[in-house]
Computed example of a mutant assay.
Amino acid sequence: MAYLLGNPNCMESLRKDITDLQGAIIDVFSRAGAVRYPSWKFPNKVSCDLDLVALLEHYDYVENDPECTQHSHVMLLELVIDR
């Protein structure tokens, strides 16, 4: 599975998953209110206060930079867990 690390299709799928999860979270928050709990990935921030748009822009596929792309892929996986 390590050969998939940094694969642009996998990363795009993760980005869509994060967006879908965030949409579901916002739907629940609109009905039950926000849950103020520390983020798993960023423990110094409250999870509902994370700027996911900025995070998704920052952690993206970078052509000709496999190390940065692999790091971004891992960060996207961790954002799925954080959601």
Rank of each mutant, 00 (worst) to 15 (best):
S13Y: 07
L52V: 04
L76A: 09
L50P: 02
Q22L: 09
T19C: 01
Q70D: 05
E12T: 06
L52K: 06
R31P: 02
R36D: 04
L55T: 07
S13T: 14
R83A: 15
M75V: 15
V46P: 01
T19V: 12
N64Y: 15
L56T: 02
Y3S: 15
N44T: 10
A54Y: 05
D82G: 05
H73L: 06
L4S: 09
I25P: 03
Y61A: 05
N9I: 11
G6A: 10
H71R: 13
A54D: 07
R31A: 10
R31D: 10
L76G: 09
F29L: 02
R31L: 10
S39E: 00
G33Q: 03
G6M: 10
G23A: 08
D27W: 06
F42A: 10
V53P: 00
N9Y: 10
P66K: 12
T69R: 06
L52C: 01
S13R: 08
K41I: 06
L4T: 05
K16V: 14
L14T: 00
I81H: 08
A32F: 14
V35M: 08
D51C: 02
R36W: 06
D49N: 07
H73W: 14
E67I: 11
S39F: 00
I26K: 07
P38F: 01
L4I: 04
V46S: 13
E67C: 01
G23W: 04
L76D: 05
L5Q: 12
T69N: 04
A24I: 08
H58Q: 13
S13C: 07
L21D: 02
L52H: 08
S39T: 00
M75K: 08
T69Q: 04
N7P: 01
L55P: 06
Q22Y: 08
D51Q: 03
A54M: 12
C10F: 06
Q70V: 06
D82T: 01
M1Y: 12
R31S: 10
C48N: 09
S72N: 15
D51S: 03
L52R: 08
V28E: 11
G23R: 11
I81T: 15
A32H: 07
W40Q: 11
P43E: 05
V62N: 09
T19D: 04
H73Q: 05
F29S: 11
K45I: 03
N64M: 11
L5R: 12
L14G: 01
A34I: 03
R36V: 08
S13W: 03
D27P: 00
L55D: 01
C48Q: 06
S39G: 00
L52T: 02
G23K: 09
L76K: 15
L50K: 03
N9A: 11
L56E: 07
L5I: 13
I81L: 09
